[in-house]
Simulated assay, not measured.
Amino acid sequence: MFKFLVAAFVLLPLQCAAAKAPSRICVDKVKALCGARTVTTCFVYSSSWQSVDERCLQDVELMIELEKTGPRRPAR
């Protein structure tokens, strides 16, 4: 049991860090949809949300959040 908890404690931050980057496919789809507008501006309109593949919705939310906060940089 202890080994499982240690493994989960060590691997969880690695999985979370990997989840902090939107997929390239979704980024390309959003760029094609939004053009020169920022993702935040583009997705103010509900029609933009309806134009995105369901599998990219979380990535779009992440792109909007990254625009607001800036990319996270690993601590050194």
Rank of each mutant, 00 (worst) to 15 (best):
A7W: 13
A36R: 01
K68C: 03
D28S: 15
P74V: 05
C26W: 02
S47N: 12
M63E: 06
L62D: 03
A19E: 11
K68M: 07
R73K: 15
V39E: 01
R37C: 04
E61N: 12
E61C: 08
Q50V: 11
Q15V: 09
V44T: 13
I64N: 03
L14A: 11
A8T: 15
S48D: 06
C26M: 04
R76T: 04
C42P: 03
S51H: 11
T40E: 06
E61F: 05
G35K: 05
Y45A: 11
A19G: 14
V27S: 06
L14K: 08
D28R: 15
E65L: 07
L57F: 13
K29W: 05
A18Q: 13
T41W: 00
V39I: 09
C16G: 05
V60E: 09
K68E: 05
Q50E: 09
T40C: 03
A17S: 13
D28Y: 11
P22N: 02
C56N: 04
A75Q: 13
R55V: 14
A36Q: 09
L5I: 14
M1S: 12
C56R: 10
S47T: 14
Y45P: 07
I25K: 15
M63D: 00
A17W: 02
Q58T: 06
V30Q: 01
E65C: 07
L66D: 07
F4I: 15
T69S: 12
C26Y: 01
V30P: 01
A21C: 10
E61L: 11
Y45N: 14
L66K: 06
A8F: 13
V44D: 08
F9I: 14
D28A: 15
I64L: 02
L12H: 09
G35M: 07
V30G: 02
V60A: 04
F4A: 15
D59Y: 02
I64H: 00
V60R: 05
A36L: 07
A32F: 09
A8Q: 11
T69V: 06
A18W: 08
Q50K: 15
V39N: 01
C26H: 01
A75R: 10
D53R: 02
C56D: 10
K29G: 04
R37V: 06
K31I: 01
R24N: 07
Y45W: 08
P13E: 08
L5K: 13
F43A: 04
W49E: 11
I64E: 02
G70Y: 06
K3V: 10
L12M: 12
M63H: 00
D28M: 15
L62A: 05
Y45K: 14
P71E: 05
T38H: 00
K68G: 09
K68W: 02
F43N: 04
R76A: 06
D59P: 02
M1A: 12
C34M: 08
D28H: 15
V39W: 01
E67I: 15
K31T: 01
A7T: 14
S48E: 03
